[in-house]
Amino acid sequence: MGEKRQKTAQEQRYQQRVNEKMPRSKTVSQCVRAFIAGGLICCIGQAVRVFGETTLHLDAEGVAALTAIVMVFLGATLTGFGVYDKIGTWAGAGSIVPITGFANSIVSPAMEFKREGLILGTAAKMFTIAGPVLVYGIGASVIVGLIACLLAK
């Protein structure tokens, strides 16, 4: 029990064959697309930043908050209109990695599970995808904070 079963020779042979023959993702073209889409999203973010600095005369903290708010709003809204998944199909990591992708990963399960109710559906399922990112992201920031605190003393 609990012990991992040894692979038989037949299993090994078959898995090797599958790995050799299966169609591959087009990594180069996907990287190019991700670069273009991710870059565009970041350019929009940068434009918001510049707007905050020059027009609204916000300080560094205010600008960071404004940019995050606007980008999350955009990601969430495009998800709501059913557009973000289409962008994602084309852009791959380019639209997953930026903060708009984070918004998409929270809004999409919230929408999908609305039919199971506002509590056990929307609220409970909202973080099924983003939850691990939050847990380990916040967890890591606490650890880094503690180390920084100790080193500073």
Binding site: M22, P23, R24, S25, Q30, T79, G82, Y84, D85, K86, I87, G88, T89, A91, G92, S95, I96, G101, N104, S105, V107, S108, P109, M111, E112, F113, I129
Partner: peptide
């Protein structure tokens, strides 16, 4: 999709297989 994979509105790519 909702039982086995991801929400429909989530943006991502499928693998070629």
């Amino acid at each position: 999709e909702r039982q086995y994979r991801f929400p429909l509105e989530m943006g991502g790519q499928t693998t070629p297989t």
